[in-house]
């Protein structure tokens, strides 16, 4: 078992006062069979109301907003998480949704042949990605599809995850997108969970490994759209600038 201090900090600055800002956040780790949140704290701009809830995939969310004119929105989500072996129990999730391709995870052509065994297949896909896709920052966007990644053969962790999910779903293997923290990274990381018939297992195609420990999960979903750390909407003509700091450190 390892213990980590996580800290996720965001400051949104508006170019002029906005009359209304509404937000929805997925910035708090979840407790499950693979990780336990031992302590957590949340700091939020005082003029914001915020409540806790769950989204469609039972991820933790915070939602709220401010209705008086203001120029900044800041929040810090911090705490201590103990991680264990990355095996997450099946809790009756609707597997159909994780087998069905989405716009971002739809690849039609046969890319590689894999063994019948689900876990072996996942390893093979992971390995294929590592050998055939180049990790290259800034060459894709949040909207880039798995099909585009396959064609261009480069991308970042989100793209690796989407393509792996697409290849799993091609084989009828339930696969989901995961967003979370990885030690030593300055931003959130994306990886994949596949369902082996009993449990959800973690695979990180960017690093070509089956996850054992050291990954702190925030949210999962069909693809990145279900997992965004923060969604917001404001009224008025302002532009916004967002600064994010993420740290995860073993303690």
């Amino acid at each position: 078992m390892k213990r980590y201090l996580y800290n996720y900090q965001t400051i949104v600055e508006f170019s002029e006062a906005v009359p209304m800002h509404a937000v929805m956040l997925r910035c708090q780790p979840v407790s499950n069979a693979g990780q336990t949140v031992e302590q957590e704290h949340l700091v939020v701009s005082p003029d914001y109301w915020l409540q806790a809830g769950h989204d469609a995939f039972y991820n933790r969310i915070l939602f709220g907003g401010a209705t008086e004119p203001h120029k900044t929105f800041a929040y810090v989500s911090t705490g201590i998480v103990a991680t264990d072996t990355y095996v997450i129990k099946y809790r009756g999730e609707n597997l159909f949704l994780f087998k069905q391709p989405t716009a971002l995870t739809n690849v039609r052509e046969a890319v590689l042949t894999t063994p019948d065994n689900v876990i072996d297949a996942a390893y093979a896909i992971c390995n294929w990605l590592y050998e055939n896709i180049v990790y290259q920052p800034l060459c894709t966007t949040v909207e880039t599809t798995a099909a585009e990644v396959l064609e261009r053969r480069k991308g970042v962790c989100q793209d690796f995850a989407h393509l792996m999910i697409a290849l799993c779903r091609q084989r009828d293997i339930p696969a989901r997108y995961v967003n979370g923290f990885l030690e030593g990274e300055g931003e959130t990381h994306a990886w994949v969970e596949i369902f082996d018939g009993y449990n959800w297992l973690g695979f990180d195609p960017t690093h070509n490994r089956c996850i054992s420990e050291g990954y702190v999960k925030l949210a999962h979903g069909r693809d990145v759209r279900d997992c965004s750390v923060s969604r917001g909407l404001f009224t008025g003509q302002a532009t916004q600038q967002t600064t994010i700091h993420v740290t995860l450190q073993e303690i």
Binding site: A22, V23, D55, G65, R231, G232, L233
Partner: peptide, 15 residues
């Protein structure tokens, strides 16, 4: 609800 569905929607009510 632009925070749950179509993010560009100006017709909805956030939250």
């Amino acid at each position: 609800d632009p925070l749950i569905f179509e993010a560009s929607s100006l017709l909805g009510i956030p939250n």
